[in-house]
């Protein structure tokens, strides 16, 4: 609060009401409903529900299917995060270095930010079209018959590729802006102290990028966990079957398609706990974050 804030009593309440009403109805209520129904077993024909305690949770954790999806989600998140961060960092460092065409490169490398995830998935489906997809043909050269939607690994690769493609621009924008905010004097001091360009990068630039990198790490994990829904859904063409899927996709499939409200809610709650843990972890580290400014 500002030290000389206004003390009008009713105005701030009036200003806060829309926000509070919306989050009460569309955030807290659903969150509580999710928590509540995760302890109940819904009758498949809609005749009420029975309290089952933690059964939904124990069933989930005991389910091989759920564990398989969890393991895939973990692998998927790891790969998407690592590749999109690494690629973006490389491009940002180069874009920060070149003198000619810097602005053009910046535009070319960031506009994909605006592409919707399902469109990215849609493009992946075309690239890997069974009969004439350019990437299918490329894999055929190496003797691999690429089959999206049939072969588990092939489908997973298409998802990862589309997800990385979609995420590189965000990371690029953040890395570039972090690089550009490194003071000139620091770069010049490094130039005098260290002859080798790669040495300068690892000793000076990289540590200064650490706060941004850490922030992006969280952003990317959240992206891979949640926002890739559109990519997963288009790549599997709405037919989960034996295809790879993420935890969020399973919440949707079980709850919306399979009408297993209790199980789906329990999955929601598990994801909520996961996100909360991630956030607490983030704040914890942020507090002790390597702050150089």
């Amino acid at each position: 609060m500002k030290r000389a804030g206004f003390s009008t009593p009713w105005l701030p309440v009036l200003l806060l009401v829309p926000q509070l009403a919306i989050i009460a109805i569309f955030f807290y209520w659903p969150a509580i409903v999710a928590l509540h129904s995760s302890f109940f077993l819904q009758d498949p024909f809609g005749f009420g529900s029975t309290f089952v305690g933690l059964d939904n949770y124990t069933n989930l954790l005991g389910s091989a299917e759920y564990r398989r999806v969890a393991v895939f989600t973990l692998t998927f998140t790891l790969l998407v995060t690592v590749f999109s961060l690494a690629l973006a960092l490389l491009l940002a460092v180069k874009a920060d270095k070149v003198l000619r065409g810097a602005k053009t490169y910046r535009t070319l490398l960031m506009w994909v930010y605006a592409v919707a995830p399902p469109v990215a998935g849609f493009i992946a489906v075309i690239l890997f079209n069974q009969s004439w997809g350019p990437l299918t043909e490329l894999f055929a050269l190496f003797g691999h018959t690429y089959m999206v939607g049939v072969n588990f690994n092939d489908t997973a690769f298409a998802m990862i590729l589309a997800s990385v493609w979609k995420q590189v621009p965000v990371n690029f924008i953040f890395f570039l802006s972090a690089l550009q905010s490194i003071p000139r004097s620091v770069r010049e001091a490094a130039l005098i102290d260290n002859r080798s360009a790669s040495g300068r990068f690892w000793d000076v630039t990289f540590p200064l990028l650490a706060p941004t990198g850490f922030f992006l790490l969280i952003i990317n994990i959240t992206y891979a966990l949640f926002e890739t829904f559109g990519i997963v859904d288009t790549v599997v063409k709405g037919e989960p079957g034996n295809n790879p899927m993420t935890l969020v996709y399973k919440v949707y499939v079980d709850g919306f398609r399979g009408n297993d409200l209790g199980g789906s809610s329990a999955q929601s709650v598990i994801l909520m706990v996961l996100v909360l843990a991630l956030t607490v972890f983030q704040f914890r580290l942020l507090e002790r974050r390597i702050h150089y400014t």
């Binding site: 989050i23 659903p30 969150a31 409903v33 129904s37 949707y252 409200l261 996100v275 909360l276």
Partner: peptide, 22 residues
Amino acid sequence: WLIFTTLLLPLEVRILPSYEVV
């Protein structure tokens, strides 16, 4: 705190109950 807690949970994790509410 009521407002900023909402930053923690994306819509995707509470999608079904949100649907029911709507």
